[in-house]
Design a binder for these strands. Structure first.
Lengths: 233, 233
DNA sequence: GCAAAAGTGTTATAGTTACACCCATGG
DNA sequence: CCATGGGTGTAACTATAACACTTTTGC
């Protein structure tokens, strides 16, 4: 009964994460130079352990390399071209992650090089990591257009102009601020706080917070949608 | 230099395909009973070979089991929970596939059991194959709402009422035929043929064909979209 | 008092929904 | 001649896009 299994060849299984962050102006990806490949920037990655699920492994690796936990993490794609890793055939399952850049204190940065790069100004990357980043950007754009996912990249409290800047960075375009704020506020997903941002502009913009309850409902509703209205075919 | 690789444990890597077909009334999934698991229905699956890409392997397995080639095939998700296969730890990359059901002549059906099941009436499935099917249905709905992907499930020539039936099957709902046909025709993605369907209705409906050139453009446009308009946040 | 960013309203247009009747044909 | 499914138009409503002025406050 096990024969069918035994005669099969196993493969190395890696996980690589595309970690997005937003500094208020530019959408960035976190890259490292380390270990084997000291000359090339690469994604944060590691190996699957024998008793570990894929997402758990991705989360563990992210934690080990950045100290971040409980961040948004979503499976992107499995990359398995023979020859993608020229040394040993490896399958890599890529995850993309959205982190609040302020939470990322440069902790482990002593042991190897780590840097945030603008998604519009990336260095050459190891193996097929460039493809992974490209796909992750597409997915982020695709997803952010329909899910209120952008909040994951901002601090707990943020202003509407900050949120707009983020979306402008994601789509590399500009939005009309009147239409933008109307659209967002019409979702009733944000709670206006009685507190203004200081220091950035003279007038100061009101802070908002995600209404986590409604955010959940929204997310769930989306998963079960019947798109009579949204059917584009 | 190879040490880092050598001390890593490799894993078995399987591919499983959720194959969708449409018989004119009901959206169906192709399942098999075979080999090891003669008692349970399961997805069509097989093992990754040493020098084969993931999609190539999925396509090969699909061809070996059904005789179908050049069908729509898209990676769905990598499933890797420890214990998902209770016999040996296996990572499975699931693909979903859209086939024109008429092309599928019951070729190899002698060697093992194969059957189309309505997506609304599935038997218990092997391992986590039920989760795979659920996710595939979600993905199909999600995708079909925005990409003109449904044509992959219909014959070369089809009528608007057929197309509508398909979308109603996918979303398990009903659409207004006036609005439906307006919406579709407004995309200018279909070419009206000078030929009517016979036998099904008395009047007969006009056949249409996909304008493959425009279909390509549409697909490409979608990949590079900047959703000023479609920003739902 | 002025520069810089925040905040807000209206109108035109486009897209979506809801809805009902006539048409062509095989039996 | 009638039953069955095919085909089409219009009006109300909703969402989107374009556009400009006033407010606050730190300097």
């Amino acid at each position: 009964m096990l024969d069918q299994y035994k005669q099969q060849q196993p493969f190395l299984l890696a996980l690589d994460s595309i970690i997005f962050g937003f500094d208020g102006e530019v959408l960035k990806v976190l890259l490292v130079k380390r270990g084997l490949e000291e000359k090339t920037w690469s994604l944060m990655g590691g190996w699957l352990q024998p008793h570990e699920g894929l997402e758990a492994a991705a989360a563990r690796i992210l934690f080990e390399l950045t100290g971040l936990s409980s961040v948004y993490l979503e499976q992107l794609y499995a990359f398995g071209d023979p020859g993608r890793d020229p040394i040993v055939r490896t399958i890599s399952v890529a995850y993309f992650s959205l982190v609040k850049i302020a939470d990322y204190a440069t902790k482990i940065t002593e042991s190897f090089q780590v840097r945030w790069f603008s998604i519009y100004d990336l260095p050459p990357l190891l193996f097929d990591h460039g493809d992974m980043v490209d796909l992750a950007i597409k997915r982020l754009r695709y997803k952010a257009a329909q899910h209120p996912i952008g909040f994951e990249l901002l601090p707990e409290k943020f202003t509407i102009p900050q949120l707009q800047k983020l979306y402008e960075a994601i789509y590399n375009t500009e939005f009309d601020k009147r239409n933008f704020s109307r659209k967002i506020l019409s979702m009733h997903l944000l709670i206006k706080l009685n507190e203004k941002q200081k220091g950035f502009s003279k007038r100061g913009a009101y802070y908002y917070q995600v209404d986590h309850l409604k955010y959940q409902q929204f997310t769930n509703a989306f998963l079960n949608f019947v798109p009579t209205a949204e059917l584009v075919l």
